[in-house]
Design a protein around this nucleic acid. Structure first.
Ligand SMILES: [Mn+2]
Ligand SMILES: [Mn+2]
Ligand SMILES: [Zn+2]
Ligand SMILES: [Zn+2]
Lengths: 154, 154
DNA sequence: TTTCTTATTGAAAATCATTTTCATTAACAG
DNA sequence: CTGTTAATGAAAATGATTTTCAATAAGAAA
Protein backbone atom coordinates (compact mmCIF):
# COMPACT_ATOMS: atom_id res chain seq x y z
CA UNK A 1 0.00 0.00 0.00
CA UNK A 2 2.22 2.79 -1.23
CA UNK A 3 2.04 6.24 0.25
CA UNK A 4 0.54 5.23 3.54
CA UNK A 5 3.67 4.27 5.44
CA UNK A 6 5.46 7.55 4.98
CA UNK A 7 8.12 6.10 2.71
CA UNK A 8 6.46 5.89 -0.68
CA UNK A 9 5.43 8.87 -2.75
CA UNK A 10 2.55 10.73 -1.18
CA UNK A 11 -0.95 9.86 -2.34
CA UNK A 12 -1.52 13.31 -3.79
CA UNK A 13 1.67 13.20 -5.88
CA UNK A 14 -0.09 12.02 -8.99
CA UNK A 15 -2.81 14.62 -9.02
CA UNK A 16 -0.18 17.21 -8.23
CA UNK A 17 2.13 16.38 -11.07
CA UNK A 18 -0.82 16.00 -13.38
CA UNK A 19 -1.55 19.69 -12.94
CA UNK A 20 2.02 20.56 -13.85
CA UNK A 21 3.02 21.58 -10.35
CA UNK A 22 6.40 20.82 -8.88
CA UNK A 23 6.59 18.88 -5.66
CA UNK A 24 8.57 21.11 -3.35
CA UNK A 25 9.56 20.92 0.28
CA UNK A 26 7.18 23.68 1.43
CA UNK A 27 4.27 22.09 -0.40
CA UNK A 28 4.99 18.69 1.10
CA UNK A 29 5.26 20.19 4.56
CA UNK A 30 1.98 22.07 4.22
CA UNK A 31 0.10 19.02 3.01
CA UNK A 32 1.65 17.00 5.80
CA UNK A 33 0.39 19.45 8.39
CA UNK A 34 -3.07 19.45 6.87
CA UNK A 35 -3.26 15.67 6.81
CA UNK A 36 -2.26 15.35 10.45
CA UNK A 37 -5.07 17.40 11.96
CA UNK A 38 -8.83 17.48 12.28
CA UNK A 39 -8.74 21.18 13.05
CA UNK A 40 -9.71 24.09 10.86
CA UNK A 41 -6.38 25.84 10.56
CA UNK A 42 -5.73 29.39 9.42
CA UNK A 43 -2.88 30.18 7.06
CA UNK A 44 -0.88 31.42 9.99
CA UNK A 45 -1.63 28.31 12.05
CA UNK A 46 -0.23 26.24 9.22
CA UNK A 47 2.74 28.55 8.83
CA UNK A 48 3.64 28.19 12.50
CA UNK A 49 3.42 24.41 12.41
CA UNK A 50 5.47 24.17 9.23
CA UNK A 51 7.92 26.67 10.63
CA UNK A 52 8.88 24.40 13.52
CA UNK A 53 10.29 21.83 11.11
CA UNK A 54 11.27 24.02 8.18
CA UNK A 55 12.04 27.49 9.54
CA UNK A 56 12.86 28.64 6.05
CA UNK A 57 9.31 28.38 4.73
CA UNK A 58 7.56 31.74 4.53
CA UNK A 59 3.97 32.74 5.17
CA UNK A 60 3.66 33.93 1.59
CA UNK A 61 4.33 30.44 0.34
CA UNK A 62 1.71 29.04 2.68
CA UNK A 63 -0.87 31.38 1.19
CA UNK A 64 0.22 30.54 -2.34
CA UNK A 65 0.14 26.82 -1.73
CA UNK A 66 -3.26 26.93 -0.08
CA UNK A 67 -4.58 28.79 -3.07
CA UNK A 68 -3.39 26.04 -5.36
CA UNK A 69 -4.75 23.32 -3.13
CA UNK A 70 -8.15 24.97 -3.00
CA UNK A 71 -8.21 25.32 -6.77
CA UNK A 72 -7.17 21.69 -7.16
CA UNK A 73 -10.06 20.80 -4.85
CA UNK A 74 -7.72 19.08 -2.42
CA UNK A 75 -8.59 21.55 0.31
CA UNK A 76 -11.70 23.39 1.50
CA UNK A 77 -11.52 27.05 2.41
CA UNK A 78 -14.00 28.32 4.99
CA UNK A 79 -15.08 31.54 6.58
CA UNK A 80 -16.37 30.91 10.07
CA UNK A 81 -16.85 34.52 11.05
CA UNK A 82 -13.54 35.32 12.67
CA UNK A 83 -11.65 37.30 10.07
CA UNK A 84 -9.11 34.71 8.95
CA UNK A 85 -9.84 32.05 6.35
CA UNK A 86 -9.77 28.47 7.62
CA UNK A 87 -8.56 25.44 5.69
CA UNK A 88 -9.32 21.75 5.86
CA UNK A 89 -8.18 18.79 3.78
CA UNK A 90 -11.05 17.59 1.60
CA UNK A 91 -10.27 13.91 1.88
CA UNK A 92 -7.41 11.63 2.71
CA UNK A 93 -6.16 8.63 0.76
CA UNK A 94 -8.60 6.42 2.63
CA UNK A 95 -11.62 8.17 1.26
CA UNK A 96 -14.27 10.71 2.11
CA UNK A 97 -14.80 12.47 5.34
CA UNK A 98 -17.90 14.39 4.29
CA UNK A 99 -19.29 16.43 7.12
CA UNK A 100 -20.93 19.71 7.95
CA UNK A 101 -20.31 22.33 10.60
CA UNK A 102 -21.80 23.57 13.82
CA UNK A 103 -20.45 27.06 14.50
CA UNK A 104 -20.54 28.76 17.90
CA UNK A 105 -21.22 32.46 17.44
CA UNK A 106 -19.94 33.04 20.95
CA UNK A 107 -16.43 31.62 20.84
CA UNK A 108 -16.10 30.66 17.16
CA UNK A 109 -15.61 27.01 18.03
CA UNK A 110 -16.45 24.73 15.12
CA UNK A 111 -17.76 21.20 15.50
CA UNK A 112 -17.70 18.74 12.63
CA UNK A 113 -20.73 16.53 12.45
CA UNK A 114 -21.65 13.65 10.21
CA UNK A 115 -25.09 13.01 11.65
CA UNK A 116 -27.91 13.42 9.17
CA UNK A 117 -25.61 13.63 6.19
CA UNK A 118 -27.32 10.54 4.78
CA UNK A 119 -30.74 12.06 5.19
CA UNK A 120 -29.35 15.28 3.81
CA UNK A 121 -27.93 13.53 0.79
CA UNK A 122 -31.36 12.69 -0.51
CA UNK A 123 -32.62 16.19 -0.21
CA UNK A 124 -29.45 17.74 -1.56
CA UNK A 125 -29.45 15.50 -4.60
CA UNK A 126 -33.04 16.38 -5.35
CA UNK A 127 -32.44 20.08 -4.77
CA UNK A 128 -29.31 19.99 -6.83
CA UNK A 129 -31.12 18.45 -9.75
CA UNK A 130 -34.07 20.81 -9.55
CA UNK A 131 -32.01 23.92 -9.10
CA UNK A 132 -29.49 23.21 -11.81
CA UNK A 133 -32.33 22.71 -14.26
CA UNK A 134 -34.42 25.69 -13.18
CA UNK A 135 -31.57 28.17 -12.99
CA UNK A 136 -29.38 26.58 -15.65
CA UNK A 137 -26.59 26.28 -13.11
CA UNK A 138 -23.81 23.69 -13.05
CA UNK A 139 -23.68 22.83 -9.36
CA UNK A 140 -20.37 21.55 -8.10
CA UNK A 141 -20.79 21.55 -4.35
CA UNK A 142 -22.75 22.68 -1.36
CA UNK A 143 -22.23 23.83 2.16
CA UNK A 144 -24.46 23.59 5.19
CA UNK A 145 -23.86 24.97 8.60
CA UNK A 146 -25.75 25.60 11.77
CA UNK A 147 -25.06 28.58 13.97
CA UNK A 148 -25.64 28.81 17.68
CA UNK A 149 -24.02 28.72 21.09
CA UNK A 150 -21.89 25.89 22.34
CA UNK A 151 -22.30 24.46 25.81
CA UNK A 152 -19.73 26.84 27.27
CA UNK A 153 -21.19 29.93 25.67
CA UNK A 154 -24.89 29.45 26.19
CA UNK B 1 -51.54 50.14 8.05
CA UNK B 2 -48.92 52.38 9.56
CA UNK B 3 -45.39 52.34 8.30
CA UNK B 4 -46.17 51.01 4.87
CA UNK B 5 -47.11 54.21 3.10
CA UNK B 6 -43.93 56.06 3.91
CA UNK B 7 -45.60 58.55 6.22
CA UNK B 8 -45.97 56.67 9.50
CA UNK B 9 -43.08 55.60 11.68
CA UNK B 10 -41.04 52.85 10.07
CA UNK B 11 -41.91 49.27 11.01
CA UNK B 12 -38.53 48.72 12.64
CA UNK B 13 -38.85 51.78 14.88
CA UNK B 14 -40.16 49.84 17.81
CA UNK B 15 -37.52 47.17 17.86
CA UNK B 16 -34.94 49.89 17.35
CA UNK B 17 -35.99 52.03 20.26
CA UNK B 18 -36.44 48.98 22.38
CA UNK B 19 -32.73 48.32 22.15
CA UNK B 20 -31.95 51.85 23.28
CA UNK B 21 -30.77 53.03 19.90
CA UNK B 22 -31.50 56.48 18.55
CA UNK B 23 -33.25 56.81 15.22
CA UNK B 24 -30.91 58.94 13.17
CA UNK B 25 -30.91 60.14 9.60
CA UNK B 26 -28.03 57.88 8.49
CA UNK B 27 -29.66 54.84 10.08
CA UNK B 28 -32.98 55.57 8.43
CA UNK B 29 -31.27 56.04 5.10
CA UNK B 30 -29.36 52.79 5.37
CA UNK B 31 -32.45 50.80 6.30
CA UNK B 32 -34.31 52.45 3.49
CA UNK B 33 -31.70 51.38 0.98
CA UNK B 34 -31.72 47.83 2.32
CA UNK B 35 -35.49 47.59 2.14
CA UNK B 36 -35.64 48.78 -1.44
CA UNK B 37 -33.45 46.09 -2.98
CA UNK B 38 -33.25 42.35 -3.49
CA UNK B 39 -29.51 42.56 -4.02
CA UNK B 40 -26.73 41.52 -1.71
CA UNK B 41 -25.05 44.85 -1.14
CA UNK B 42 -21.61 45.50 0.24
CA UNK B 43 -21.00 48.23 2.79
CA UNK B 44 -19.63 50.41 0.04
CA UNK B 45 -22.60 49.71 -2.23
CA UNK B 46 -24.85 50.93 0.54
CA UNK B 47 -22.63 53.90 1.21
CA UNK B 48 -22.81 54.98 -2.43
CA UNK B 49 -26.58 54.70 -2.56
CA UNK B 50 -27.04 56.58 0.69
CA UNK B 51 -24.52 59.14 -0.44
CA UNK B 52 -26.64 60.20 -3.40
CA UNK B 53 -29.37 61.44 -1.09
CA UNK B 54 -27.36 62.29 2.01
CA UNK B 55 -23.84 63.21 0.90
CA UNK B 56 -22.90 63.86 4.49
CA UNK B 57 -23.15 60.24 5.62
CA UNK B 58 -19.80 58.54 5.90
CA UNK B 59 -18.69 55.01 5.17
CA UNK B 60 -17.72 54.52 8.79
CA UNK B 61 -21.28 55.07 9.86
CA UNK B 62 -22.49 52.55 7.32
CA UNK B 63 -20.20 49.94 8.82
CA UNK B 64 -21.27 50.81 12.33
CA UNK B 65 -24.94 50.73 11.51
CA UNK B 66 -24.67 47.42 9.69
CA UNK B 67 -22.95 45.95 12.71
CA UNK B 68 -25.86 47.00 14.89
CA UNK B 69 -28.42 45.69 12.44
CA UNK B 70 -26.69 42.33 12.23
CA UNK B 71 -26.56 42.08 16.00
CA UNK B 72 -30.23 43.03 16.22
CA UNK B 73 -30.94 40.25 13.73
CA UNK B 74 -32.54 42.68 11.31
CA UNK B 75 -29.91 42.01 8.69
CA UNK B 76 -27.94 39.01 7.44
CA UNK B 77 -24.23 39.30 6.77
CA UNK B 78 -22.76 36.99 4.15
CA UNK B 79 -19.43 36.05 2.70
CA UNK B 80 -19.84 34.94 -0.88
CA UNK B 81 -16.17 34.58 -1.69
CA UNK B 82 -15.35 37.98 -3.08
CA UNK B 83 -13.57 39.77 -0.26
CA UNK B 84 -16.27 42.18 0.85
CA UNK B 85 -19.05 41.27 3.25
CA UNK B 86 -22.55 41.37 1.78
CA UNK B 87 -25.71 42.40 3.57
CA UNK B 88 -29.37 41.59 3.13
CA UNK B 89 -32.46 42.56 5.10
CA UNK B 90 -33.74 39.58 7.06
CA UNK B 91 -37.41 40.30 6.60
CA UNK B 92 -39.70 43.14 5.77
CA UNK B 93 -42.82 44.26 7.60
CA UNK B 94 -44.91 41.88 5.47
CA UNK B 95 -43.18 38.81 6.79
CA UNK B 96 -40.52 36.27 5.93
CA UNK B 97 -38.55 35.94 2.78
CA UNK B 98 -36.64 32.84 3.77
CA UNK B 99 -34.40 31.64 0.99
CA UNK B 100 -31.04 30.10 0.26
CA UNK B 101 -28.29 30.93 -2.19
CA UNK B 102 -26.84 29.65 -5.42
CA UNK B 103 -23.35 31.10 -5.80
CA UNK B 104 -21.44 31.25 -9.09
CA UNK B 105 -17.76 30.61 -8.45
CA UNK B 106 -16.99 32.09 -11.83
CA UNK B 107 -18.49 35.57 -11.61
CA UNK B 108 -19.68 35.65 -7.98
CA UNK B 109 -23.28 36.12 -9.02
CA UNK B 110 -25.70 35.09 -6.31
CA UNK B 111 -29.17 33.74 -6.98
CA UNK B 112 -31.79 33.59 -4.26
CA UNK B 113 -33.97 30.52 -4.39
CA UNK B 114 -36.96 29.43 -2.39
CA UNK B 115 -37.45 26.07 -4.07
CA UNK B 116 -37.14 23.10 -1.73
CA UNK B 117 -37.19 25.23 1.39
CA UNK B 118 -40.29 23.37 2.52
CA UNK B 119 -38.65 20.01 2.01
CA UNK B 120 -35.56 21.38 3.65
CA UNK B 121 -37.52 22.59 6.64
CA UNK B 122 -38.37 19.07 7.67
CA UNK B 123 -34.82 17.89 7.51
CA UNK B 124 -33.42 20.99 9.13
CA UNK B 125 -35.83 20.77 12.02
CA UNK B 126 -34.91 17.17 12.62
CA UNK B 127 -31.21 17.83 12.30
CA UNK B 128 -31.47 20.86 14.54
CA UNK B 129 -33.14 18.83 17.24
CA UNK B 130 -30.72 15.95 17.01
CA UNK B 131 -27.62 18.09 16.85
CA UNK B 132 -28.57 20.42 19.65
CA UNK B 133 -29.13 17.43 21.91
CA UNK B 134 -26.05 15.47 20.88
CA UNK B 135 -23.63 18.37 21.01
CA UNK B 136 -25.42 20.37 23.69
CA UNK B 137 -25.61 23.29 21.30
CA UNK B 138 -28.25 26.02 21.26
CA UNK B 139 -28.91 26.36 17.54
CA UNK B 140 -30.18 29.73 16.40
CA UNK B 141 -29.94 29.53 12.64
CA UNK B 142 -28.59 27.79 9.61
CA UNK B 143 -27.26 28.52 6.20
CA UNK B 144 -27.26 26.48 3.04
CA UNK B 145 -25.70 27.33 -0.24
CA UNK B 146 -24.86 25.63 -3.48
CA UNK B 147 -21.75 26.50 -5.46
CA UNK B 148 -21.29 26.16 -9.16
CA UNK B 149 -21.23 27.96 -12.47
CA UNK B 150 -24.03 30.12 -13.78
CA UNK B 151 -25.23 29.86 -17.34
CA UNK B 152 -22.86 32.56 -18.48
CA UNK B 153 -19.81 31.06 -16.79
CA UNK B 154 -20.18 27.39 -17.58
C1' DT C 1 -39.47 75.75 22.67
C1' DT C 2 -34.93 75.79 24.99
C1' DT C 3 -31.49 73.36 27.50
C1' DC C 4 -28.76 69.48 28.72
C1' DT C 5 -26.80 64.95 28.35
C1' DT C 6 -24.48 61.82 25.82
C1' DA C 7 -25.05 58.60 21.90
C1' DT C 8 -23.75 59.20 17.29
C1' DT C 9 -21.14 60.95 13.65
C1' DG C 10 -17.32 61.95 9.91
C1' DA C 11 -12.51 62.33 8.82
C1' DA C 12 -8.28 60.59 9.31
C1' DA C 13 -5.26 57.23 11.03
C1' DA C 14 -4.59 52.51 12.27
C1' DT C 15 -5.19 47.48 11.70
C1' DC C 16 -4.31 43.31 9.77
C1' DA C 17 -5.17 39.41 6.68
C1' DT C 18 -3.89 38.71 2.19
C1' DT C 19 -1.53 39.89 -2.26
C1' DT C 20 2.05 41.69 -5.14
C1' DT C 21 6.81 42.60 -6.47
C1' DC C 22 11.22 41.16 -7.52
C1' DA C 23 15.65 39.22 -7.10
C1' DT C 24 17.24 34.57 -5.75
C1' DT C 25 16.79 29.51 -5.51
C1' DA C 26 15.80 24.84 -6.52
C1' DA C 27 12.74 21.09 -9.34
C1' DC C 28 13.34 18.35 -12.73
C1' DA C 29 13.55 17.42 -17.95
C1' DG C 30 17.03 16.43 -21.05
C1' DC D 1 25.44 17.58 -14.68
C1' DT D 2 23.26 21.56 -16.88
C1' DG D 3 19.76 24.72 -18.30
C1' DT D 4 15.16 26.35 -18.00
C1' DT D 5 11.89 28.39 -15.43
C1' DA D 6 8.49 27.50 -11.72
C1' DA D 7 8.74 28.40 -6.98
C1' DT D 8 10.33 30.91 -3.11
C1' DG D 9 11.10 34.50 0.81
C1' DA D 10 11.41 39.25 2.28
C1' DA D 11 9.59 43.43 1.99
C1' DA D 12 6.27 46.50 0.30
C1' DA D 13 1.57 47.20 -1.17
C1' DT D 14 -3.31 46.49 -0.88
C1' DG D 15 -7.86 47.05 0.67
C1' DA D 16 -11.65 46.05 3.62
C1' DT D 17 -12.75 47.04 8.12
C1' DT D 18 -11.87 49.22 12.74
C1' DT D 19 -10.35 52.70 15.93
C1' DT D 20 -9.65 57.39 17.56
C1' DC D 21 -11.32 61.73 18.75
C1' DA D 22 -13.31 66.17 18.51
C1' DA D 23 -17.73 67.95 16.77
C1' DT D 24 -22.74 67.19 16.27
C1' DA D 25 -27.51 66.16 16.91
C1' DA D 26 -31.32 62.89 19.12
C1' DG D 27 -34.25 62.86 22.57
C1' DA D 28 -35.30 63.61 27.61
C1' DA D 29 -36.15 67.13 30.77
C1' DA D 30 -37.48 71.65 31.96
MN1 LIG E 1 -14.67 20.51 9.26
MN1 LIG F 1 -30.29 36.43 -0.63
ZN1 LIG G 1 -18.79 28.78 22.15
ZN1 LIG H 1 -21.19 33.25 -13.24
Amino acid sequence: MPGLDGTGPPWWGGKFRGCGYRITVPRQAILSVLSKTEDHLSAEDIYLKVHKIYPGVGLTTVYRTLDILVNMALVFKFDFGDKRARYELREGPKGERHHHHLICTGCNRVIDYTDFVDEEKDLLDKAEKGLSKKYNFKISGHSIQFYGLCEKCK
